[in-house]
Nucleic acid binder design. Structure first.
Lengths: 332, 332
DNA sequence: CAGAAAAATTGAAACGTTTCAATAATTTGA
DNA sequence: TCAAATTATTGAAACGTTTCAATTTTTCTG
């Protein structure tokens, strides 16, 4: 049972495959009658060109971009995806999304698949990992596929552009807010080791409150819940700066389990401003990250690189993030 | 600046492209010395076969499956994706995810892209739409691409298998729970029109509580929030059955804004059991849907179809969903 | 209505791979 | 050491498209 090909169409229409191809590619050199006849047959035969065969130097197939995120569960990424999709769509590009689920081998794998699927550009939120030998980025460069990162990487090896917010400043603002409210015992539930953001946000917290205690937590609801349970046992703590909103929600749940009230007993600040943050019983004070905007900007940036013939220099675009004060923080 | 091809490798290694191809495809007919030399050169040149060129009858390229969901923002889908990814991985398949964001044209588009990218099978959570002419499903069939739906469609036109839960029963159980608690004024915040689940769940609610009032809401946080604000103005209502957990959370927020307590004044039941449901200040009573399991099962089912040579009959697999009682519901 | 100009169509090469029959090189056995 | 057997390599066809120069058909002009 063979797949229908352009040849079948041509045969049935009594024309050459060249003519069918011309119709397919909307070249206006085909007579209206012929075009109609061919279009008809395409329809009856339910023919669709096999994308894989369309490539030829200069005709880079359906325009497709790839996006590799760290985890599908975090609404933070959902927003980035939506923004990216919007922008990609606007420029008639398709977006293929893959998630590394915080495993480096999967990140590498995802990049490989995407490259194999012949994408024209890539957005990636890379994992930070000492194991990382950066070959997948080297591959991208070797294949001449422009890419943009949504989180800078330490090593200067890669020449990629970065679209992000100023995480240090965001964390500083959040912590500063607590300090101004009179908090003296601030704990920072820090993010996962595989994230560059973790480092940047720690730095911001410490700049605003040098005495803050840093506790390793993670990036998920459970991480926040567990960190408070395991690390804050009876510890002196009047305010929590969380790596992100999910961690904050998890932490709040555990705090509540321990009979502590928010914000009366403990103030909590999140990060990201995911939608649900404002729907909680105690609406969360958090740092609003322009997630969609980041997605959009990232796409716009790769697109620029794709279309500029000259080797554009790598840039670092930092969007604004601002503190949104709601009900989870209170004067001490 | 041409891309490196197999020819370049062959030339540099002083062998024929056939030999390089043999190495690439792990055929054991290549002498160890030759293999090593070629592998080396592949490495230096950073060569990677252009996937697009690998297709030939019988060698269907990198094994890839597609997954089309309705919206990226709902954690419900995140879990399905994770389950699907797990199962796909286990069988050495890759998963490409696209979201229709509740727009039919995008769903069609997504299917087209995926087909063009040469997927071997597809999982789709289809939009219900009167406009839908089902051509994209017809296309899948014409291209002989097996697919599985995560939500049945009314029309009997398509012969696809379905993996789902018994939504009618789930909604019945949820509502029955409220009835048993003595509630007489039950309102159902129903889902969006584009979802088959909406119909099924309405039916379940009405079977358990024929007098329940059905209010059109939607599937998002905002939908829940707005529905309660606009439709329940002073209406008699002691219990809410929500289309899903997101709607429930939105509704609870609005209820709270109106000074109502949960569950003392109003009991609320959700649907899906997304992770955050159990982290809320008032943990949500909800119907637990085995989301990962569904993702896994769906993949397993397409895979079966892909590998069975005979035309396997379409099946309808219903997984178990059960009510999880937490704190958002209370005796009247 | 002929000839020229313009428009439409054809046909073959090219894209980068895999496959497989044919050939070449190596190993084995006596 | 030689032929046979085995193993390794080659070369060309095939996959389904696009492209573009060459050819054919149609339209226009006087």
């Amino acid at each position: 049972m063979r797949r229908t090909t352009i040849k079948d169409v041509a045969e049935k229409a009594g024309v050459s495959i060249g003519t069918v191809s011309a119709v397919l590619n909307r070249r206006d050199s085909v007579r209206t009658v012929t075009r109609k006849r061919i279009l008809n047959i395409i329809d009856t035969l339910n023919y669709r060109p096999i994308e894989a065969a369309r490539r030829r130097l200069g005709s880079p197939s359906e325009k497709t971009l790839g996006l590799v995120i760290k985890e599908i569960h975090n609404p933070y990424f959902a927003d980035i995806i939506v923004g990216a999709q919007e922008e990609a769509r606007k420029h008639h590009y398709r977006l293929l999304v893959m998630s590394s689920e915080q495993v480096l081998s999967r990140e590498i794998d995802a990049v490989n698949v995407l490259v194999a699927k012949d994408i024209d550009g890539l957005i990636i939120n890379p994992l930070v990992d000492s194991e990382s030998d950066f070959t997948h980025f080297a591959d991208l460069e070797a294949h001449n596929i422009p890419y943009v990162m949504l989180e800078g990487l330490q090593k200067g090896e890669t020449e990629a552009s970065v679209v992000d917010i100023d995480n240090e400043k965001g964390a500083y603002d959040a912590t500063r807010h607590l300090v101004e409210l009179g908090h003296q015992h601030i704990v920072h539930l820090a993010g996962p080791a595989y994230s560059q953001h973790t480092l940047e946000r720690c730095a911001g917290v410490l700049r605003a409150a040098p005495l803050a205690r840093i506790v390793h937590a993670g990036a998920t609801l459970k991480d926040g819940y567990n960190a408070v349970r395991d690390e804050l046992e009876g510890a002196l703590c009047t305010a929590l700066v969380c790596y992100n909103d999910l961690v904050a929600i998890g932490a709040m749940r555990q705090l509540q389990d321990q009979g502590k009230r928010i914000p009366e007993d403990v103030s909590v600040v999140g990060f990201d401003d995911i939608e649900v943050a404002s729907y909680l019983s105690v609406p969360l004070t958090t740092v609003r990250v322009p997630k969609r905007e980041m997605g959009r900007k990232a796409i716009a940036t790769v697109l620029e690189r794709i279309h500029s013939s000259v080797e554009s220099p790598s840039t670092r675009i930092l969007l604004d993030a601002e503190l949104v004060v709601r009900s989870s923080t209170k004067k001490r």
